[in-house]
Each structure stands twice: as structure tokens, then as C-alpha cells.
Design a protein around this nucleic acid. Structure first.
Lengths: 188, 188
DNA sequence: AAAGATATCAAACAAGATGTTGCTTATTTA
DNA sequence: TAAATAAGCAACATCTTGTTTGATATCTTT
């Protein structure tokens, strides 16, 4: 009996999965995710709809892969943040890394933003930043004097996310350095 | 020919519209908006589906009314903010009003939050706060010295929204006064 | 290179949701 | 009370989703 090596995907599988994935991203630049139908993806990808269902349960399963890729890329980008958990320095360093990362991926983030009413991109940013912050919070659970750590982080996470989203939208108004400079002034 | 007074709705119309509206809100406590079907609303409201379509094009038209009601209630609640556009005082006063308003409407906001992944509530908060801030920005367009006004407001709007959402979720952890006190410390 | 394995395609199907329509019944208005 | 009109009912076409079948093409392994 012929047996297939494990973990080695058939070329056809790789090809169709890549194609479906790329086509979804393409469509996200045109439409809301909710507006995108499985048949839209298949038509554009020139792949039979039954083949789609052979790989994914539904379009949500496909988009999860995309979102978690963006998340892990961003998470990786800010993970090398080596600073101790001194609030101001930490957030400044983090936002520098985020902005750098966004600058590289500008196109895709912007395209999604313009069609998907903030929510996807905002979810990504909030999730990744939250994870990083909470991880550090656990390691540095000094009982804060005046303000609970959780409140501080909630405040800054919101502020940073908001700045990032705005920066993605109006790409050329301020440079990365400008933003960091302003944040430096805005944070205590 | 019998003619109807204009602007005066038939009782039946009022009744069904109220019913559909209330039923949608009820369902939002159980399901995501995307998961709610027109037939769900009609079944629960005991109203024929064709009657639904006689009033609204689709469920989006129905929810728009709900969201804009929440928005205008919130907008009204923060409009009486009489302070001049001194950043810190303005935002503190605003957040006090928002928190007071939320406290009254706690139940509905929380219910929606738990089922709808932040986005609806976040959209409401961001939109209302943005409008208020932008209105004041226009009236006070002093060319800021060090930081562009737009950047300042983006920063604080994000921070305030984030704090509000977190507060809605963990209702009893901090009092309204606590939050305001912490924000007072966090803002320059 | 050939045989065997398997992924894709094509076509058809059922189930569910969306809108629309024509007709009847019930309620409201004046 | 009569006229107007909203709501109910039932049927219909359409679209989207998932699933299934068997034929065809492509890949893997020997």
C-alpha cells in the first residue's frame, strides 16, 4: 500500500489554500467581510465551491487564519521590546515598534480599514497590545500606589490604539517620529 | 375622500414598530447582530414577516434606529458640558457625564457588549465623543504650540473610550468616582 | 514511467433566508 | 358606520449555504 509521508501537503492542496487565502485578502480591499460570500471567493479564485468546503468549514475559518497571521506578526514585532515595565518608556518603545511594523504593512492595513469600519484592525491591535501588556503586568505585579495597573494599561492601550488607527488612515500627515514625539509629550 | 392628518401615525403602525424595535434589542442580548435573522425577530415579536418588510428594508434599517437613539441620548448627555476647551478639564467633565449616562443604561450596554465583541458599543462611543470633540476643536482652533490638537484628541478619545468599555464590562470593580480620580491623575 | 492515491471539478440537491406579491381579514380613523 | 389602511396569510422566485456523487486530472511513490 502506498503511504504518504506525514506533514507533507499535496501540492494541489497548498496551491488552492494559498489561492483562497490571497483571494480573500484581495476581496477585503473591496468589500466588508460580511458582504463577501463563499461563492465570491471561489469565483474570483477560479476554484470550485465544493473544493472550498473540502478545506474550510466556512469563510470565518479562512479569515481566522489571516487575522491570526497579522496578529502573530505584530506580536512578534513588539515582543523584542526589552525595556523594563516602566510605563512611559515601555509604551513609547512599544508604539515605535508598532508604527514600524505598520509602516511595512501599510497597504494591507489601510485597505482593510477603509472597508471594514475599524473593527477588524482595532480587534487586532487591542488583542495584541493587551496580551503583551498583561504578560508584563503579571511579571511586575507591584501593587501600584495611586492607580491600579489595570486602569493605567486600559487607558494607554486605548490611547495607543486610537493613535495607530488614525495614523494608518491619514498616512502622510505625520511621520513616525512625529507621533512618537507627541506621545512622549502626552504621557506622564 | 377621507384624508389622514399628516405626521400622525396609525396606532397599529406604532405598535408593530415598537414591538419590532423592542424585540431586536431583546435579541441583541442573546445573539450577535449578524446572527439575528429577520425571521427571528418576527417570530419572537409575533409579527408577520411581510409586515416587517412593509416597515423596514432589512434588519440593518431597524438597527440603525436603535444605534442612533443610543448615540443621540449619549450625545445629549455630554452636550451640556459647559467647560471651555481646556483639554484636561474638558475630558474629565465629559467622562463624568458619560459614566453617569452609562450607569443609567448599564444593563443594555452590558448585554450588547457581551454578545457583540465591542464593536457596536465602541462605534457608538467613538462616534459621539469624536463629534463633540471636533465641534469644539473647530470653535477653538488655536494653533497649538507643541502638539496638534487632532493628535491630542485622538489620544484622549481612545483612552476615554477604552476606560468606558472596560468599566461597562467589570461593573462593580470601581466606582464612577474612582475612575474619574484615576483619570485626573493620568491626564496632564 | 506506471500504478495507485487523492484532490479537484461538475452537477445536482436540500435547507434556510430574503424579498415580493396578491388576496383576505382586522383595526383604526374620521 | 363607512372608508381607509395595516396586518395577516400563503405562495413564489431567488440566493446562499453546505453536502454528495461520480468523473477527471494531478500528484506521489515505487
Amino acid at each position: 500500500m502506498i503511504k504518504k509521508e506525514e506533514n507533507k501537503k499535496d501540492l494541489r492542496v497548498i496551491k488552492t489554500e494559498n489561492l483562497l487565502y490571497a483571494t480573500l485578502i484581495d476581496l477585503l480591499k473591496e468589500k466588508t467581510f460580511e458582504e463577501i460570500k463563499v461563492s465570491d471567493i471561489c469565483n474570483k479564485a477560479l476554484i470550485n465551491r465544493s473544493t472550498f468546503y473540502a478545506h474550510y468549514q466556512d469563510k470565518y475559518e479562512l479569515v481566522v487564519g489571516f487575522i491570526s497571521t497579522l496578529k502573530s506578526e505584530l506580536a512578534k514585532a513588539i515582543k523584542d521590546n526589552g525595556s523594563t515595565f516602566n510605563t512611559k518608556e515601555y509604551y513609547l518603545e512599544m508604539i515605535e515598534m508598532i508604527l514600524t511594523h505598520i509602516e511595512e504593512k501599510k497597504k494591507i492595513y489601510q485597505d482593510i480599514l477603509t472597508n471594514n469600519r475599524n473593527s477588524i484592525v482595532m480587534d487586532i491591535l487591542l488583542d495584541v497590545i493587551n496580551n503583551d501588556v498583561n504578560e508584563r503586568l503579571e511579571k511586575n505585579l507591584k501593587e501600584n500606589e495611586k492607580i491600579p495597573s489595570k486602569v493605567i494599561s486600559t487607558f494607554y492601550i486605548g490611547a495607543v490604539t486610537s493613535i495607530c488607527i488614525e495614523w494608518m488612515k491619514n498616512t502622510n500627515e505625520y511621520s513616525k517620529e512625529d507621533i512618537i514625539h507627541y506621545l512622549n509629550l502626552l504621557m506622564q
